[in-house]
Amino acid sequence: MWGRQTVLCTILVFAALVTQQSFLTRLGLPGATPDLLLVTVLTLAFAYGPLTGAVVGFGAGMALDFAPSTAGPIGVAGLIFMVIGFIAGAAIDPRDRNPPVLIGIIGLSCGAFVIAFAAIASILGEVRVDWEQVPTLLLTATLYGGLLGLAVVPVVSILVGKITPEAVL
């Protein structure tokens, strides 16, 4: 099970990263970029629990940090994704999934990322952080996150169920 789970997580995360950086960021939507990568991490955390959530979050965040299209401080997205993945995995019991709750957690997590990134980057002395933009980014990130969740959760759930039927889902 571990092998197939690892492969599935890797492929989904990489596909989400590429789709986000090459497509979603370039749509020019107002405010934040729809955070497909974080939504994917959260969905995998819901399915596989806190430990996998943290590891997948770490990997996805680091990949985002290292992507040539980003220039933020290395490791910050990795740290935040890891914590969010862990908390999401711990908060949801895979046997007792309530769709509105899942979508709510996804939306709030996408908003939390905005604040956490701005805060940590500020502490690290990043000159680019503009707190005046944070409320707009927060609102739009939460909204886009929730909408993306509506599409991503069912798709990933089906994939998880098909490829790793042993997982409690």
């Binding site: 950086q21 090459s22 040539p68 933020g72």
Partner: peptide, 16 residues
């Protein structure tokens, strides 16, 4: 050609 753009959440204006 621009092939990717950094997310707005990270405040940096960068492209690949």
């Amino acid at each position: 050609e621009v092939i990717a753009v950094g997310p707005a959440q990270e405040f940096a204006w960068t492209v690949t």
